Simulated scan of single mutants.
Amino acid sequence: MPIRRRAAFAAPLALLPAAARAQEGFPGRPISVLSGYAPGGVTDITSRGVAERMGRELGVPVVVENRAGAATAVANTAVAQARPDGYTLLMGTSTLAINPGLQPTLTPKEPLRELAPVGMVFRTAFVLHVHPAVPASSTAELIAWCRVNPGKLNFGSSGTGAVNHLAQALFAQAAGIEVTHVPYKGGAPALLDLRAGRIQAMFQAVLEALPSLRDGATRGLGISSAERAALLPDLPPVADALPGFDVVFWQGLFAPAGTPAPVLARLGTALSAATEDRDLRARMAEHGVVITTGDAAALHQTLATETTMWGKLIRDAGIRPD
């Protein structure tokens, strides 16, 4: 009789769908996190730090795979089309909000529907800095100078449609000024020309701008985020001159749409543990990165808000990819 009872209770477990049984044991093998950027940059360094900390929490290796190309669409597409089991994730960035408006043929065409948010990872601001020959020592003075000299300020960026280009376009729109956009293939060549005076202004990631600011080759006027940057605490937000201005490059963790809720919850818990880790936060702060604790809802809201914001700006300013 006891044997029959055990068999009767075991039968329903055996009949559970394979997907349900897999969820119960998640994670049972290494997890891949795809990044749309090449190794070595701030995005990659942060991805690896977060992945390593998540791995300790989950008890399996969490491995970052760099798949650069097509404005991060190579990595984005691979994850959007992956099996929704939690073993293939994406370190998505601001490009997910930009690509639908700038390059609508890239996939995923609707990231809000094709990806499932897990949680926020980081925000990093841009420095508005200028060549010393520019007669402005504050954001307000730069705006005033541009109003008197329309189109004369050559404003560099790391490429058409890059976040620092859109920051410049939003800045000009909000201030009601006309500037000349000069796109480069990356931030390094743009910085060289800024230091040489061949362009006069640029929004640039804090860590990239620091050496030029410290040796006096450029002058910092403001920070693009609503809050001050830890590495440049004396630099006021651009929002002091343009209320509401808040532009950052962000990164968040995503899974394919359709990933089971229990799996997303487990990943979210591990991500939260990683982003709250004091040692990781301190290490990333040295790179000008503000590790951000934010759940799936916060990431979804960020993506939704910026998709609308950048889409409107791209249409209004007539921005087209090179």
Results as ranks from 00 to 15, higher is better:
P2H: 15
A7V: 14
A11G: 06
L13K: 08
Q23C: 13
F26N: 09
P27T: 01
P27R: 04
V33I: 13
P39C: 04
G40T: 09
G40P: 02
G41I: 01
T46Y: 04
R48I: 00
G49P: 01
G49L: 02
V50K: 06
E52F: 09
E52N: 12
M54C: 08
E57P: 06
L58Q: 04
P61Y: 10
V62G: 05
V63T: 13
V63S: 10
V64T: 11
N66G: 06
A73N: 12
A73W: 02
T77A: 09
Q81D: 15
R83L: 14
T93Y: 06
S94L: 06
A97V: 00
L102Q: 00
T107V: 05
E114V: 04
V118H: 07
V121A: 01
R123Y: 03
A125I: 00
H129W: 09
S138G: 06
A144Y: 09
F155S: 01
F155L: 10
T160I: 14
H165G: 00
A169D: 09
H181N: 14
K185Q: 14
K185F: 12
K185V: 13
R195E: 14
G197F: 12
I199E: 11
V206M: 00
D215M: 04
G222F: 00
S224D: 00
S225A: 15
A229C: 11
L235P: 08
L235S: 09
V238S: 02
A239Y: 03
G244N: 09
V247K: 05
V248N: 12
W250Y: 13
P256D: 05
A257W: 01
A261N: 04
P262E: 09
V263D: 01
L264H: 10
G268Y: 11
A270S: 11
S272W: 10
A273G: 14
A274S: 06
T275S: 10
E286D: 12
I291R: 07
T292Q: 12
D295E: 09
L303F: 10
T305R: 13
M309K: 13
K312I: 06
K312C: 00
